[in-house]
């Protein structure tokens, strides 16, 4: 079969290229999560802050990055971020900075992820009742300890479904970095299409690979949720 040969691994098949692209897509999504989570958590804290300006900043941040098309955010971070960084570094030295596409893609996706994640965290915070804080205070726990031992473990459990959903969205959004010359799955697929002139086959296969990735993720998410809920006794 001709079509199968096109998908084979080897010099005239595109299987290995697609696999490389898939690997980059996975790496990019995985690298974005810790960055996006940390940023999202900080933004959520800002939105809960007693400081008026911090709150305003947090709200503006969420409004902007949830309102902009992801594609536009990626362009702005990729081109604008690079020009801005170059100017800032230029203030101090003549050195040229090089931001590689992977980092730029990670930052752009992470910014979008964090805007949504901050809302998830905020919702989770609001679901933790005052009583929890009061009980911790009554036990003599200091605020930092309260956060670490009492609040965060509950926060993780409450935020998990929302974050899992964001992960699935992130996985799909990685395809947008193909337009800034990062060799992800979709871009490698585009390359294969240009050479082989088989768009339907290759874009179809790419879709199936994305589908497989989200299927695997769903299985992982179920396992993680079960683990996070282990301390929760069901009231019968």
């Amino acid at each position: 079969m001709d079509l199968l040969r096109l998908l084979s691994f080897g010099p005239d098949g595109w299987g290995d290229e697609l696999l490389q692209g898939t690997w980059l897509t996975i790496r990019l999504a995985l690298a974005t999560v810790p960055f996006g989570l940390a940023l999202g958590f900080l933004v959520a804290l800002a939105k809960r802050s007693p400081n008026r300006y911090l709150r305003a900043f947090g709200n503006a941040y969420t409004t902007v990055f949830r309102g902009l098309p992801e594609l536009l955010t990626i362009f702005i971070v990729y081109f604008g971020g690079q020009i801005a960084l170059q100017r800032i570094v230029g203030l101090f030295s003549g050195a040229t900075v090089e931001v590689n596409g992977f980092i730029a893609g990670m930052v752009a996706l992470g910014v979008v992820f964090s805007a949504y994640a901050s809302e998830v965290f905020l919702g989770a915070f609001n679901n933790i009742t005052r009583g929890q804080y009061e009980a911790a205070y009554a036990l003599g726990l200091r605020p930092a300890t309260t956060l670490r031992l009492v609040i965060i473990p509950q926060l993780v459990r409450l935020a998990l479904p929302g974050l899992a959903n964001l992960w699935l969205i992130l996985l799909k959004d990685t395809s947008l970095v193909s337009v800034i010359a990062l060799d992800d799955l979709l871009r490698k697929t585009g390359l294969a299409v240009r050479v082989t002139k088989e768009p339907f086959l290759f874009f179809g296969v790419a879709c199936l690979i994305y589908l497989a990735l989200s299927m695997i993720s769903s299985i992982g998410i179920v396992a993680i949720e079960r683990w996070a809920n282990r301390g929760l006794r069901r009231a019968s």
């Binding site: 690079q82 900075v97 090089e98 337009v179």
Partner: peptide, 16 residues
């Protein structure tokens, strides 16, 4: 370096 056509001039300006 290989860079997409549309991004060539911006990336040159950015010092890539």
């Amino acid at each position: 370096t290989v860079q997409d056509w549309d991004g060539l001039i911006p990336a040159l300006q950015a010092g890539k």
